[in-house]
């Protein structure tokens, strides 16, 4: 993502400024509301009209969230395990495939690249129920390895697409020079191409992590019951609780679940913007 260049028109009217401030307010308000509600005392959450800020900051909602029987700590642990493992596997496989697709000269390369994206045309709901069936047959239903194995279908196509476009921008002369010097293809890939693709790898890692961390449907179907639930699935249970959503606990849990994302967002904004626009605009 290039730095924002000089603006076109020298005049930015008060109307434009006001409009942008309003947009930003609408954009940020739900995040603010989540944080504010998470720290409110119980009875303030259900008062009408609601107060913008808690009258006093309490941690009661968090105490209830992490209460003995909730299992939320374990769910966060499951989410961390699933997201990091899926990210590692996706990175390795997508870096390999992306390099092969960008620099290889075999037949059907372009077709393969396009058909990876075709994966997103299939409704996830069409895929997930049969996949649950396979996992059940193999004894991996309701297990984290089962979920990780299946997550590749969500993470791999985007990762390959992004990395292929990064590898494609590397001048072929670089790897060819290494080949002429007698290096193997493996060396050219490992020691020359990979280090030069660090920004792409970073974007892929961040995106894969966030997508799996936030994922709901696959986790709901595959590890929906029992102790292997991820944080998303656990939160959905609170949301769809028999006696209505417990908003205080829900906002506390939402905030906890969002912390890794917020951290990445603040410290890796550059990579996130590059990845978001990379699918549609040349990087």
């Amino acid at each position: 993502m290039p730095p924002i260049p000089k603006r076109r028109t020298a005049t930015s009217t008060a109307a434009v400024d006001g409009f942008v401030i309003a947009l930003a307010a609408v954009s940020v308000f739900p995040l603010f509301w989540m944080i504010s509600t998470a720290f409110k005392p119980f009875d303030e959450i259900y008062q009408f009209p609601p107060a913008l800020f808690p009258s006093q900051v309490t941690l009661g909602q968090f105490e209830r969230l992490f209460g003995v029987s909730s299992g939320f700590t374990r769910m966060i642990g499951n989410s961390i395990l699933v997201s990091t493992t899926t990210t590692l596997i996706t990175m390795v496989l997508a870096a390999m495939a992306g390099y092969g697709l960008a620099k290889g000269r075999f037949r059907g390369r372009r077709l393969l690249l396009r058909s990876t994206l075709l994966a997103y045309v299939f409704p996830p709901i069409l895929l997930v129920v049969p996949l649950f069936g396979i996992l059940a047959d193999l004894g991996y239903a309701n297990t984290l390895p089962g979920l990780i194995a299946v997550y590749l279908i969500i993470t791999f196509p985007f990762a390959v697409w992004l990395l292929t476009s990064y590898f494609a921008t590397l001048p072929t002369e670089l790897t060819e020079a290494a080949r002429i010097d007698g290096a193997s293809n493996m060396r050219a890939f490992w020691s020359i191409a990979l280090p030069l693709t660090r920004p792409g790898l970073a974007a892929v890692a961040i995106f894969t992590f966030i997508n799996t961390w936030n994922e709901f449907l696959f986790a709901f179907v595959i590890v929906g019951g029992g102790q292997n639930r991820t944080a998303s699935v656990g939160l959905s249970a609170i949301l769809r609780g028999a006696e209505g959503a417990e908003y205080g606990v829900l906002m506390a849990g939402s905030l906890i679940a969002m912390i890794p994302i917020i951290i990445l967002f603040v410290f890796a904004q550059k990579h996130i913007v590059a990845g978001l626009t990379g699918g549609a605009v040349k990087g």
């Binding site: 995040l31 998303s232 906002m251």
Partner: peptide
């Protein structure tokens, strides 16, 4: 964009 579907729906 930071919101997951579950957090989005909850808020």
């Amino acid at each position: 964009w930071m919101f997951s579907s579950i957090v989005l729906a909850a808020v």
